[in-house]
Simulated assay, not measured.
Amino acid sequence: MSTIHVVEEIYIYPVKSLAGISCRQALAEEMGFENDRRWMLVDAENQMITQREHRIMSQFYPQISKGKISITFQDQKHEFSIDEHLENPLEVNVWEDKSEVVEVNKATSKWFSEHLGFECKLVKIIKIGNRKHESSKLKETYNVSLADGYPYLLVGTESMDFLNEKLKDKITVLRFRPNIVISSKKAHEEDDFDHFSIGEVQFKNVKPCGRCIMVNNDPQNGTLKKEPLKTLSTYRKADNLVFFGTNIVSLNTGIIRVGDEVVF
Rank of each mutant, 00 (worst) to 15 (best):
M1Q: 07
K121P: 04
V206W: 03
I71L: 11
A238P: 11
K124Q: 10
E84F: 10
N130I: 10
V123L: 08
N130M: 04
I128W: 13
N205C: 13
H85G: 11
S250K: 03
W111Y: 03
N88T: 11
D36P: 09
E189Y: 07
E165W: 04
N130L: 04
E114C: 08
K106E: 03
N252A: 08
S22E: 14
E165T: 10
Q59R: 15
F118E: 03
N143L: 10
Q51C: 15
C23F: 03
E30H: 05
E190W: 03
V155C: 00
F264A: 00
N216C: 07
Q220A: 04
V181N: 11
F176T: 04
F60T: 02
E103D: 01
H5E: 10
M57Q: 03
Q220D: 12
N143D: 05
E8W: 12
P151L: 05
G210T: 03
V155Q: 01
N205W: 11
K106S: 06
R211A: 02
S2I: 03
F264R: 01
N179E: 00
G199T: 06
K132T: 08
P62R: 07
Y61Q: 09
I126S: 05
F193P: 04
P208G: 10
E200P: 14
N217T: 15
L224A: 13
S159F: 09
R37P: 08
E96W: 08
L116V: 15
M31Y: 13
S70Y: 08
V242R: 08
G149W: 09
I171S: 13
K185I: 01
E165K: 06
K68N: 04
F193G: 03
I180G: 00
N105K: 00
H85M: 10
G245R: 01
P208Y: 06
K98R: 03
E87L: 09
E84N: 05
S135I: 14
V15C: 14
S2M: 15
I180L: 02
V215P: 11
W111L: 00
D161K: 09
V201E: 12
M48L: 12
P178W: 02
V123K: 14
V7M: 06
F176R: 03
V94N: 12
L174G: 02
F112I: 00
V258D: 10
V94F: 03
T253R: 09
L224N: 13
G20P: 02
F244P: 01
T253C: 13
N93M: 13
F73L: 05
I255D: 10
E84C: 08
T50N: 08
A26V: 12
E158P: 08
L163G: 01
E91D: 14
I21N: 06
T141R: 06
E53Y: 09
D169Y: 01
L18Q: 02
S65Y: 09
F203T: 12
D218F: 00
G156P: 04
I71N: 02
G129A: 07
K230C: 07
D161M: 04
V42D: 15
Y11I: 05
K166S: 15
F243K: 12
L18R: 01
G259S: 04
F244T: 02
H133M: 07
E96H: 06
W39N: 09
K170W: 01
